[in-house]
Design a protein around this nucleic acid. Sequence first.
DNA 1: ATAAAAATTAAACAGTCGTTTAATTTAATC
DNA 2: GATTAAATTAAACGACTGTTTAATTTTTAT
Lengths: 216, 216
Amino acid sequence: MTKTTTGPGRPRRKDPDAVRQALIAAARDHFAQGSFKTVSVREIARAAGVNQAMVNYYFGDKRGLYEAMLEETIGPLIRVLEEAEARGEVARLEDLIPRHAAMLAANPWLPNLIIREVLYGESDFRNLFIEKFASRVAGALRRAIDGGRDKGELRDDLDPRFGTLILFSLTIYPFVARPIVERAMEIPIDDAFAGRWSEQILQLLAPSKPPPEDDD
Amino acid sequence: MTKTTTGPGRPRRKDPDAVRQALIAAARDHFAQGSFKTVSVREIARAAGVNQAMVNYYFGDKRGLYEAMLEETIGPLIRVLEEAEARGEVARLEDLIPRHAAMLAANPWLPNLIIREVLYGESDFRNLFIEKFASRVAGALRRAIDGGRDKGELRDDLDPRFGTLILFSLTIYPFVARPIVERAMEIPIDDAFAGRWSEQILQLLAPSKPPPEDDD
DNA sequence: ATAAAAATTAAACAGTCGTTTAATTTAATC
DNA sequence: GATTAAATTAAACGACTGTTTAATTTTTAT
């Protein structure tokens, strides 16, 4: 007779890697809502529908799961950015800003994850995030800003040292502080937000006056 | 013979309230570095130099300590803002922005505390923060913006709905994401930063062209 | 002077955490 | 077909958590 009740033993093979993937997906969602320490292995395993010991079996320990989750979630995003940059698709601010905003809007777990682990010194994923992600985006923004200034597409009264920080603040904060934005300012962060917000940012950084028609 | 060794018993009276105050100060510093859940009462009590049972004796439970800490730390800040507003000292953006930036720079635990509990749904201090603090600052900013626009001191191509969000993003993000700013952008957030940053923000929002000399 | 209240301590309690172990079942190998 | 390896389970382990308790000392009130 075939086994029907649940119990120990190797399962009658389904997709290998299914358990691994389920754990990573559950980990991503849970670590976006809570920190490394506050989210428990039991929680994640329950959400993934697997035994909690599977975490240690597949990833060694809780930290191993977190790192694997990072690689499989922000890894692809970084690669997309690198490729777009190599093809010159994000050299201009008009391309980079909407792209960045859309990416944040499409991956609501990302800003949570970043801010949480950057603020939290408890686990030392700080360096990983800063070096692998923040520095890369900052570099792309910096190059786009320098290019825009050289071509006169950017207002000239900006301290170049602060340009990147202005862009970072404007593009990231609304997504990070979403509850404040939606409730204290009553601005819904919906599908349309990323587009309108990008326009506003670009307008803020445009040259202070359009070239008059009668001169140059 | 007088008692010399440590042990149970009422102490030979020092400042009443000393234990309470020590616990609140230690709680403020620890909750700025970790969340409500990750920081243990043993940690706080050890840092305050008192027995861990004092937390329950004076505040009932851990949550009571957290709430008392909030009242005695952000409480005064809110009152200062209210009084300044009543005296009309923050009606203009030129006054409000440097004041806000200086306040954040002077209380480095504040943005950490706010962002942490707003992002963390685990404890429900969200409402408290949003209603008592964020909404108040947002309101002051909104009024200052409206006033500035009416008097022509503000550029006219801003969506008024987004004005507050722009200011919030620019004034808060650098302090919230301090590690990213200092390491990925290499901008030190030191004593001089708040002033220079405020100038930059005001310049960004100034009318696109200063009134020409030959016409009103 | 005596009794009651207040403040403090060390110890214990019950719950949760991440991890390990032993048992068990299926798949792969020879 | 027998043996070994892989995958899964329930249970246990020790560490840590917030809280409570009983004992102890000092202060206050009668």
